[in-house]
């Protein structure tokens, strides 16, 4: 099975995922070690389960920031699954990181302009 993405207007590799009844565009960021992080402004409209969790992130500038550690249900390779997600006002885009890609093959083809995530 595979999930097809695309390059957004800033020429970044992204995928769209179903989150409840919404569709969210996630930047694929292998420089992010977590699963997903969503800006607060997007999180407000989503069915996110805030279960009183907090976690610290370290950013490229060396700054650490606090985010809420929560969970939500997404459609991933056709299956509805519950995943951990962080929400923060310190990010501007929804980001999908390396933890979501475990057991997958990510192909970003800058020649063919395709973005593909394949399950192993």
């Amino acid at each position: 099975m595979q999930i097809d993405g695309y390059f957004n207007v800033r020429d970044e590799p992204v995928i769209k995922l179903d989150v409840g009844s919404s569709q969210i565009e996630f930047l694929i960021d292998t420089g992010f070690s977590g699963g997903m992080i969503i800006p607060d402004r997007l999180a407000k409209g989503l069915d996110i389960n805030y279960d009183r969790g907090l976690e610290e992130f370290s950013s490229v500038t060396g700054e650490t920031f606090l985010a809420s550690g929560c969970s939500m249900t997404i459609t991933w390779f056709g299956q509805s699954i519950r995943v951990p997600v962080a929400t923060s006002e310190k990010v501007e885009l929804a980001i999908l990181g390396g933890n979501m890609l475990k057991g997958c093959r990510l192909i970003i083809d800058y020649v063919k302009r395709t973005v593909t995530i394949m399950s192993s």
Binding site: F32, S33, R52, L54, F57, G97
Partner: peptide, 21 residues
Amino acid sequence: AGALFFLRVGSPYAHRLMTPR
């Protein structure tokens, strides 16, 4: 039922976000 603080074992924080924003 209390609030939870997450850490990655072996690291001072849970995650790194290395792409500049």
